[in-house]
Nucleic acid binder design. Sequence first.
DNA 1: CTGTTAGCGCTTTCAA
DNA 2: TTGAAAGCGCTAACAG
Lengths: 332, 332
Amino acid sequence: MRVTIRDVARAAGVSVTTVSRALNGAQDVGEETRQRVIEVAKQLNYRPSHVARSLVLRKSQNIGLLVSDFRKGGHHFLYDVLVGVHDTLAEYGYDVTLVSTDTARQQLVSYVDFCRARGLDGVIVTGIRLDDPYVEEVVESTLPSVVIDLPLLSRHCGYVMTDNVNGARYAVRRLVSRGCRRIGFVNGAAHAAVSRERLRGFEEAVRQYVGVYDDRLVVYGDFTLEGGQRALAELLARAPDVDGVFFASDLMAIGGLQHCRAAGIRVPEDLAVVGFDDIDLARFVTPALTTIAQPRYEMGCEAAKMLVHMLEKGEMPSGTLLPPQLVVRETA
Amino acid sequence: MRVTIRDVARAAGVSVTTVSRALNGAQDVGEETRQRVIEVAKQLNYRPSHVARSLVLRKSQNIGLLVSDFRKGGHHFLYDVLVGVHDTLAEYGYDVTLVSTDTARQQLVSYVDFCRARGLDGVIVTGIRLDDPYVEEVVESTLPSVVIDLPLLSRHCGYVMTDNVNGARYAVRRLVSRGCRRIGFVNGAAHAAVSRERLRGFEEAVRQYVGVYDDRLVVYGDFTLEGGQRALAELLARAPDVDGVFFASDLMAIGGLQHCRAAGIRVPEDLAVVGFDDIDLARFVTPALTTIAQPRYEMGCEAAKMLVHMLEKGEMPSGTLLPPQLVVRETA
DNA sequence: CTGTTAGCGCTTTCAA
DNA sequence: TTGAAAGCGCTAACAG
């Protein structure tokens, strides 16, 4: 049924070893033998079995993409990362297998065991948070991994994330340059690593550009639209004189915009707004959202590249920070 | 290094055969032997190698998800489908491997060969169009497949798509019920199967609800925002008295909205607009877009289910139509 | 340069 | 009920 290496060997009148060598570019094969083998293989439309090869080589050329929070509608961040990961990995000759943390079948076993059972060579982890039970596993396991958006560094685990500190600084600088002096911050979930960094960048920048820092101007949303609405209402109740707000996600910023519209607050005249992420909604809301863009696609690429380098060149994992970028539109 | 079935056998004092049987729930194993084996396996944290099992069983419990047009920013339709596919497949105990048609490494070989080389049990195909070179392959190959959004039915190939004909009808009906009498249609790419069906639904509905059908009111965009802008401009130039427009995608509709704003056309007063897809942008543009929602997640689930049924129960592939839904917002 | 041999980790006849 | 042996398709010593 299936064309195997034996069929090729037989048809070419050589041993399977020779076929293997010829097709894998070993040098100890006669040139004309190689040509004949290649010719026959093509004739027979032979495709080496990755499965068999994985078994003997003990590596699968297959990487897991672990996704926490893999659900309908959660695409804003994930999709581009996924494409970046896939593009790059395909380039290097790796396949990618999706691994979700919250699928019924899988939620009990450790994800490392999941990957091991499948012989995955490594894993790229997304959507994980500081308080996640998986964090420990990622750090301790010897399965080569690269985490996106969480600074976990160990012998077998590197990470790539946006430079959130500077991202927050850019936002504040923009607000200040527009004349804002009382700047609020609607941060994301407190247990997200990115939240800590953005807070740090926010505080540093406010101290530097404004002078006085008032931590009552920091409130917490949960990265969602509704969270942003609520958080802004709370902030405004607490400090009605706020003239600019930095939101730790575009979704929250858009929630904030909705609150403003409902409350009759003009943006940017009464209140300037800067978001974070640059999801494509940002261009389309009215007024269009000024925001800090994250290089999502590139983060995926970078993570994939690091993992392959760890796998193939034995490189040490590292922490990579990618630069965010201010995108000026209408809200600030 | 790795715990194999032999380790378990040794530790349990039985043969590998017995371990295999015990762990796979065969009945010809003594109950206490089975318990012991299970206990030992747990103790040793044994995970059967999927690779080895795939090799001998000649099936991998692994499905390919073929994506044409897998690129940065193209998530509007794809992401939810992908999540649906993954959720359902995971439920059934299958892994999913991403396969992209346009990645450098892969573009030359046939995707069927790609899947075969990896021992994939089947494939779910998305983003493919009528004029795609892959169409032939999908139909002819014996690799079990399910296509999303393209009605390809053969011995080994089923499909699932939205009921586009009725979707278009709902759009027209909505427009008519708002009083529109001269209804235009900005269709998507002509070679997309969905475009034909939507056109059919449009024509049928216009004949039914309006009475007269004028095919000069049909123009073509390419599913993109810019395409929608251009197409609407063209339509309006051709027929300035149009009072309602149905766009075959939300992205095009949003482009149309932008054109309206630029041209001083009030929506929905001067021109009512209905889109198609219900991407999440639709809620956020101003005015919010009335549209026909596609059950993207469910399409993914359905496709996965069909494929698994084909694989495990030997069911014949079939064509499945999922119902769209009118979502009324502000533009119509 | 080429072939023989021995597995990779697992399932499955076939005997016992 | 259990085990020995063969083999899935491939690669890699080790000889020749």
